[in-house]
Amino acid sequence: METLLVFLLVQLSVSEGRPYDPAPGIWHDKSEARNLDCSRMSQQRAHELHPGEIPAPLARLANQESEALVCTRRIMRNGERPERDELILDSLRESVGEIAEVASALGPGKLTWHVDAFYPQPEVAAKISVAARTELAEQGRRVSDKVPVLAAGDIVVLGRMAPKDAYPLACKRYFAQRALGENDAFLGIMLIDERETQLHAGLCLNGEWRWLR
């Protein structure tokens, strides 16, 4: 019995007696490790970012570059939200930032920007459009919270069309119905295929639709 105890103590202390190591093992299971986002960086940088968790490199080891593995736990664990929603929301800042940058470059001048998102889940669609409006407004664009709407008949017809035809036609209808004017730009952000995990965008200017990404 004692021999076995010694054996286990040796294993715990030497090999996996590192409870703060996030790798799966005795202390952490695999699913827990998958809820972490980790990156390697110098210990000095890691200490600056997380002074309460990572000690400063020792002065006597100043010549040696020591590294730290910094892991942060994701707020929403795997499985808490539908997978595609989680992926879209996870990269929302990045994707919306890219879209707003491209759109701003293509729609210069004193335009009033309107934004809407087309995504199967309304609450996620609202998050996407809010993020894009905020991003454009922070870039100094004139942004409206108002979303242009089409007549019910138009929506019924457009709903039956494939995206490649629906968005350009919707853009024409917005302009024709004066929901958008010459000084208005409409940025549409959407999902095209149910199997993808990225957002696409198109810009409607003067009744002309242009795919951005």
């Binding site: 707020i75 929301l89 996870d90 929302l92 809010v130 993020a131 409006r133 905020t134 919270d145």
Partner: peptide, 19 residues
């Protein structure tokens, strides 16, 4: 005032706007 919070990976993001 509109306040929107979203969990994006390991960060919580606040988007505030005044309309």
């Amino acid at each position: 005032i509109f306040l929107d919070f979203e969990a994006e990976g390991s960060a919580l993001v606040l988007r505030a706007r005044i309309t």
